[in-house]
Design a protein around this nucleic acid. Structure first.
Length: 202
DNA sequence: TGCCAGGCCCTCTTTAGGGCCTT
């Protein structure tokens, strides 16, 4: 598979359209089946973190107050990932915040997202749940740290992506997993999935 | 004051509803 950047945001809520902002971002670069580089930073967007989110993530208002400004962090992380394809677990969520926070620093995203949640639903339909933590447990992947912290979640999403790649190579005998194939799989209706995978068999 | 997301996907579907995921 090509080099990709797996990202994860912690935020004050679920929707930038409702005023929610990013509080932490992490990105890990995956190349040749391993994580080869990492970026992580808290960020101060000048907003208050609700108590529920403080206890969910462990990221407190005090931690954010001393964090670098959100604009500086977004420029840094955007430079860090460059134009590598982006991957996130439930990319619909992270892409919204990525786009919204980049727009505030007059930048736009150049690349598409791959979604490890959509991929897992198709490649591991038998998993009891497709939450990131449940998939880590199901696939016996290493727990990289505290759930709902950006770097730990990005590392575990990267492990999951590599596991899904391996499932395609080993169990489905796909000859070569490309980002383009992952995009096809995540878009494929259930009725087309087998055909989509079979077309890439060795 | 009260309310507050949205895309995907299944099904007892498509003139809809509700669960799953993300924080």
């Amino acid at each position: 598979m090509e080099v990709v950047a797996v990202i994860d945001f912690e935020t004050t809520g679920l929707s930038p359209a409702q005023g929610d902002r990013a509080t932490e971002v992490a990105a890990v670069i995956v190349a040749d089946g391993e994580v080869v580089d990492r970026y992580q930073s808290l960020m101060n967007a000048g907003v208050r973190i609700p108590p529920f989110i403080e206890s969910l993530t462990g990221i407190s208002n005090a931690m954010i107050r001393s964090a670098p400004p959100v604009a500086e962090v977004m420029r840094d992380v955007s430079d860090f990932v460059g134009d590598y394809p982006l991957v996130a677990h439930n990319a619909a969520f992270d892409s919204k915040f990525w786009d919204a926070e980049l727009a505030r620093v007059q930048r736009t995203r150049a690349q598409d997202f791959v979604c490890s949640l959509l991929l897992a639903r198709r490649i591991l339909p038998q998993a009891p749940s497709h939450r990131l933590g449940a998939l880590v447990e199901y696939a016996n992947l290493p727990v990289a740290g505290r759930y709902h912290r950006a770097l730990a979640d990005a590392e575990m999403a990267a492990s999951l992506l590599m596991y899904l790649e391996d499932e395609l190579l080993q169990r489905h005998e796909v000859r070569d997993v490309s980002v383009e194939l992952l995009r096809r799989i995540q878009r494929a209706p259930k009725s087309q999935l087998a055909k989509c995978i079979a077309a890439r068999r060795a």
